[in-house]
Design a protein around this nucleic acid. Structure first.
Lengths: 172, 172
DNA sequence: GACGAGTATCTTGATTTCCGAAATATTGAC
DNA sequence: GTCAATATTTCGGAAATCAAGATACTCGTC
């Protein structure tokens, strides 16, 4: 079904296949880099990988309950208690009881404050200093592209995110 | 690079800023999904997160020495010995001595064979079944785009990979 | 050739993290 | 008001991780 609409074998359609491969290879390389980055960032934060990843999840998304964290990180619920304990002890997160359902606890990141690390302006939602110094090179990179191209990139990113989220959700 | 310098404040240049934000937000969401996916995939592989991430690194890149793995994953060298022991015991990697420098060991993934999980054709270099069933939705997704757009995406992915790799390398 | 400095991997014992199951607290239905 | 259901925490044991020392190999120098 690859060449479904017929394009993949359209004379010089090999170009298209090349692009698929390039995107896949670059994507994999990027994933590998991300893994290493995850550990490097944890290291510099003086956090163990699990605690750090938990914190990233909270900062990049919405507040989560311990049970949710356990499900997403595939940890035992008891483990999450320890993780949140450690993060809370360091003042990085905060436990609040759910207003409606008081057996629930919501874990919220604390002090998500100033910018992306190299910017001091008010940062966007959920985007605190996970990766200090990352913003600038990305801005530089994006200057290379036209508005239309950025449109394409944003669209693609959004859709890939959807695919990945579907995958992540399915595994629960 | 088209209207390079002055565009970000060009009357309705707000559109550009919007796109920057969208790319950042979607990118972060994607990173969060990737973290969850990492643990889910480890779970289904019956591997602990560290072992799994080590395996991914080996499969997605070139064979690495234990010392290299330790540096990239920020682990003690002794830990890597255990990790590789476990992976080797399960037949997932293989230790080879370096031909020239025999105190060195190179860890190579074993049996990287058939496809991406849902494809049976010969898979590309280093791209075994890390994520079964991922190929198809991605192919479907990419059919939405023109060749020129794919060109843009591939280019962007490649360059972002470069930025991330720089970051990962710097932390060593 | 053999010696010593330098480098890479592998052991070992102590510490930390993680899991699994039972205990506690709260809700919602009957 | 009682009881089943759900969510979090506690607790002991197992596993993974670290730090430092031991071992093995290479390379430059004599």
């Amino acid at each position: 079904m690859d060449d479904a609409e017929g394009t993949a074998r359209h004379g010089h359609g090999g170009r298209r296949a090349e692009l698929y491969d390039a995107i896949r290879d670059d994507g994999q390389e990027l994933a590998a880099s991300l893994i290493q980055l995850l550990h490097a960032a944890a290291e510099t934060s003086h956090l163990n990988p699990t605690d750090f990843q938990c914190l990233v999840l909270l900062r990049l998304g919405e507040p989560l309950s311990p049970g949710e964290i356990a499900a997403r990180l595939k940890l035992a619920t008891g483990t999450v208690t320890s993780v949140v304990d450690r993060l809370e002890r360091q003042g990085l997160v905060q436990r609040d009881r759910h207003p409606d359902d008081r057996r629930r606890v919501v874990v919220r990141p604390v002090d998500p404050p100033a910018g992306d690390g190299d910017a001091d302006g008010p940062e966007g939602p959920g985007g605190p200093g996970i990766l200090p110094g990352f913003r600038e090179p990305m801005m530089d990179l994006h200057e290379r592209y036209s508005e239309a191209e950025l449109e394409t990139i944003a669209d693609w990113l959004h859709r890939v995110g959807g695919v990945l989220r579907t995958f992540a959700d399915r595994a629960r």
